[in-house]
Design a protein around this nucleic acid. Sequence first.
DNA 1: TCTGGGGTCCTAGGACCC
DNA 2: TCTGGGGTCCTAGGACCC
Length: 418
Amino acid sequence: MTTFALVDCNNFYASCERLFRPELKNQPVAVLSNNDGCIVARSQEVKALGIKTGTPLFKVLPLLRQQHVHIFSSNYTLYGDLSARVMSTLEELSPIIEIYSIDEAFLNLSGISDPSAYGKQIRTRVYKDVGIPVSVGIAPTKTLAKLANYAAKKYPATAGVVNLMDAQRQQRLLAITPVAEVWGVGRKLSASLNNSGITTALELAQQKGSRIRRHYSVVLERTVRELNGEACLDLDNAPAAKQQIVCSRSFGSRINDYASLRETICEFAARAAQKLRRERQLASNVNVFIRTSPFLDNAAQYANSATLRLAYPSSDSGAIIAAATTALDSIYKADYPYAKAGVMLADFCSARRSQLSLFQAPAQTAQRDKLMQTIDNINHSGTAKVWFGGQRPVKDWFMQRDMVSPAYTTNWDCLPLV
DNA sequence: TCTGGGGTCCTAGGACCC
DNA sequence: TCTGGGGTCCTAGGACCC
């Protein structure tokens, strides 16, 4: 039997902000989404105020002010760097690890004689090395490890580590946990399950798999099995190649003219192409979407998207930008206040075994590859220094970030002074 | 006034093949 | 008028995750 551990950072973004502002310890901290739109991370004190993740800032701003909550714009440079530090510490503690998201990872603790003690060590070590508090859930399946981690966070008496290897402990926790907290049960499913009288995780676990499969899906059936200690999900050590790459943003202010929208699409296309090259993949499909704000109900709405197929798979910024602008031209309508747009790349194949084009000489392709590589090398650090003519070179024009903290760990000019 | 961004997996249905 | 059985591939849409 495998022993899974789920290590999850506590209030990750809020903890990152606090790390370099020690005076904010025990103070309420909230972190905002792009454009300072909604709340995406909250310290314990803010959670206690009843503010939910995803709440639009403007709805709770008076309350936050009144409670002296420290508000931060998102600073993904900082979070990404601290995440990498947490993950490399975890890799030293366990040879097999699956990085599941920016703030959590599954570890394989099979063969460790006292997993609970090891869980405590993990906590201590990450806090000492990186300064970020984590919680640890241990169980024979990933779904149960998720649940154990939930309990480690929810119940202070656990001191941040819950070991669910024992079947009776599993039952006790499942019985007091709402079904909505189960990994894979979201809003729609929990509402539907509640209607059928299934309100706790234990009640879900006691369902017959075949019945769940008939009424819901094979996915939920797998969840039921996992809740009963039958491991259906393996630890995924080497992340699979991406199947799509998206670059999209809501705008800090509406875009009303074609020229600006075109520049935005070029910028997204170039960034997506760069991500694609980092993945060492080639894309065949380029999709562009544009839309007005669905929240302005008195204004005329327009949303559309178009997909273009490239003549041959490519990661060439020039080819992808050209396709994206062509797609944009096919859906653009004047006189709408555009609020969001994006570029999606899909239908990938590996750059290592790509199909050559009948109409393009291999030497020419190699030359373009070299050009892209050179551009990536020049742009490697910090803001872009080389770009295509259609892109807008200034990068901060469409995003509102009024309360952003310094890039303490990645920019010499932002080093904290002691 | 102000509502994020980036992903995955599964299913159903249509077009098409022999 | 009747119209098999077995399959693939693609797309759209819906659910979920952080």
